[in-house]
Design a binder for these strands. Structure first.
Lengths: 148, 148
DNA sequence: CTTGATGCAAAATATTTGCATGCTC
DNA sequence: GAGCATGCAAATATTTTGCATCAAG
C-alpha cells in the first residue's frame, strides 16, 4: 500500500500541473479512499467522507467529480461487478487482480507475474499500447462453497 | 462462433426447464445478439431489434428483462468499461478475453491458453471454485496511437 | 384456460450539469 | 481579486417495477 504522504504529494503535484485547486473536500475524499483501502461505490465514499468531516458538508456531485479526476490521473481505479455498479479503490498499489465471490461479495486481491508478463505480450502482439488491465475471477470462496 | 440453431436449442431448453415461454420478442433479441456478434449496450440492442422487427414493437423493459435472463443462463455475457456502461455479447463462444481501446472504443477478443491455465491455478490456490473469469486489457489500439 | 410475458408509464437509481456563491492561489 | 470548486437542485441517463392486457403452452 502507498503511504499517505506520498499519495498526497502526487495529488498536489497533479493539481498544480493542471492549475487546479487543493480543497478540503478533495483531500477528504483522497484520504478516505486511502484509509479504507477497499472497493467503494461513490455513495459509500460520500457517506464515509460526510461522516468523517461533519463540518464540510460534501455534496455527492463533488464526490463524482473528484473520483473522475483521481481516476483520470491514475490515483484511483475503478472496477465494476455485475449489479453492484462501479467501485473505486486507491491507485498506485502494486498492480493486482481480483477474485470475487458471487455469494458473499468478498473481494480478494492477488498478483501473478506470469499473467502480468503474458498480458504485456498480448498487448504487443495486437499493437496495443497498454495503459491498464484488469482480471477478475469470479466464483465461490472457500466459505461459501457447499460443504462436500 | 456458435451456430444459431444450436443457440436457439439451448434457449428453448432453458425456457422449458424453467416453465418460461418462448416469445417472438425473446427470440428476436437472441437473434440480434447472435447476428451482430459484437458488444452492444441494451439501448443498441433495443434499437436493432426494433428496426429488424417493426411489427413487434419491443419495449426497452423487455430487452433488459431478456438480457438478464440470457446472462443468468450463460447465453449472454456482459462486460463494462469506462463511461460507456455495460455491453452484452452472445455467450457460448470459446472463452476469450478483451482488449479495449480507450480512444475509439474498439473491442478486440483474444484467447490465451497460458492465462487460462494460470487463472485456474490461482483460483485453486485461494480455494475458490471458479465459475467465470474475465480479463480486460485497456490501452490504445494501433490506429489511435499518436504517430511516433 | 392458466400463467407467464409484454408494453407503457411511473418509479427508483445513478450520474451529470447549470449556476450563484465561496475558497484557493 | 480572479478563477476554479462547491453545494444544491434540476436535468439526464439508466434500470426496474406495477399493472392491465396479450399470448404461449
Amino acid at each position: 500500500m502507498v503511504d499517505y504522504p506520498t499519495l498526497l504529494q502526487r495529488f498536489t503535484e497533479l493539481l498544480r500541473n493542471q492549475n487546479l485547486k487543493f480543497t478540503r473536500q478533495r483531500e477528504a475524499i483522497l484520504r478516505t479512499l486511502h484509509e479504507t483501502d477497499d472497493h467503494l461505490s461513490p455513495e459509500e465514499i460520500h457517506r464515509l467522507v460526510a461522516r468523517q468531516n461533519p463540518d464540510l458538508n460534501v455534496g455527492i456531485a463533488t464526490v463524482y467529480r473528484t473520483l473522475a479526476l483521481l481516476e483520470s490521473a491514475g490515483l484511483a481505479d475503478s472496477i465494476s461487478f455485475g449489479k453492484d455498479g462501479k467501485k473505486y479503490e486507491i491507485g498506485l498499489k502494486k498492480h493486482h487482480d481480483h477474485l470475487v465471490c458471487t455469494e458473499c461479495g468478498t473481494i480478494i486481491e492477488f498478483t501473478d507475474d506470469v499473467i502480468e508478463a503474458r498480458q504485456e505480450a498480448i498487448a504487443q502482439a495486437h499493437n496495443f499500447r497498454m495503459t491498464d488491465h484488469t482480471m477478475k475471477i469470479v466464483g465461490l470462496c472457500a466459505d461459501c462453497q457447499p460443504k462436500a
